[in-house]
Amino acid sequence: MTRTLIVITDHERQHFLPAPLIDELLSLLPAHRIVDPLSLKADDWATLLAEFRPQLIITGRKTPMLPDDIAIGGDGLRYVCHLAGSVKHLVSDTHLRRGLLVSNWGNSVSRVMAECGLFLTIAALRRASHWALAMHREGSWKDGNTEFFSLFERRVGLHGFGAIARELLRLIQPFGVKLQTWSPSVPEAELAALGVQRAASLEALFDDNEVVIELASLTPRNRGIVDEAMLRRLRPGSVFVNIGRGAVVDEAAMVRVAREGKVQFALDVFTEEPLPLDSGLRGLSNVTLLPHLAGPTTDRQRDAGAFALENIRRHLAGDLPTALIDAEAFARST
């Protein structure tokens, strides 16, 4: 039997693994122990690992970092099944190089993240932040000069074309939009089959589209690639949405452009999180802000739990789990 530690908070257990998922999980893992990481004191974690010697650990956002010298492979730890996204608080590249298998929620949350991208796009087109502030604080109402816009038949550019972009494509196509992407690694035949045009360059993506949605991964090349010059390619009245990675955008430059009020911004991710109280992005009526909510909603965290359960079934059957974190994915994660 596989010795298994389930190190998640009560909140995570209720939302990622509601019944019957928790019952199915525990039936697969008779040699298990459940630990709330919030109850662990400074030395408890190392002692627990040394005494229980887990071969499988199911982890959440509050699970402590694994010690570098933990036994890996053989009768030691073989697999860490992480219920959430980032694993950098949990494992190091040393663990990966030593052969530890680590997975996260993979693409199980992509459709919900895409939903948030669609929401932010429509909110920005309808000037939702402006009216939320103006109606609450100033008692405002529309007049004959009020402008607001629809998503139907817009030109939409996607910077990046991974799993979230593909789910967003499915959600946004009914609006009859013309879609472009800048993601050089995606084969031309794949884009053609999906009805997506490849932009000539990232600059062209910003030049040619009325809505640009940021979905690029955070690689060394992409850090700060959306700079002030790039943002100034957006035409007046256009929309820039970021549900990807905050550091892909030069945030100081974005503040300068946003303050001019000519472009609508809708942002869920930021270079520094939580967003500082004195951030120049706060208080601007043309900037819609969310506190990194594009991940799984409270009711859809169970999708990640079901994905983890399937990965554990695969592991117990001797197959490789999906959504494994390799060195490249670890390096570009935040």
Rank of each mutant, 00 (worst) to 15 (best):
R3F: 12
T4K: 01
L5V: 02
I8Y: 07
D10S: 14
Q14I: 08
D23Y: 06
E24G: 03
A31H: 12
K41S: 12
A42L: 10
D44L: 02
I58V: 13
T63Y: 02
P64E: 03
L66N: 02
I72W: 09
I72G: 02
G73C: 10
D75S: 13
L77M: 09
R78Q: 13
Y79F: 15
S86R: 12
V87P: 02
V91W: 07
H95R: 01
L101C: 09
V102T: 06
N104T: 01
A114I: 00
G117N: 08
A123K: 08
R127Q: 15
S129H: 12
H130Q: 15
H130L: 15
G144K: 14
G160P: 11
G162E: 05
I164G: 04
L171P: 02
S183C: 14
E190C: 01
A200V: 14
L202I: 13
E203A: 14
F206Q: 11
L215N: 05
A216I: 05
G224Y: 14
V226D: 06
R235P: 03
N242C: 07
V249T: 15
V249A: 04
V255F: 07
E272I: 11
E273I: 09
L277A: 15
D278S: 15
S279W: 08
P291Y: 09
P291V: 05
Q301T: 14
F307H: 00
E310A: 14
I312G: 05
R313Y: 03
R314E: 03
E328L: 05
F330T: 08
A331V: 01
S333W: 11
T334C: 04
T334D: 05
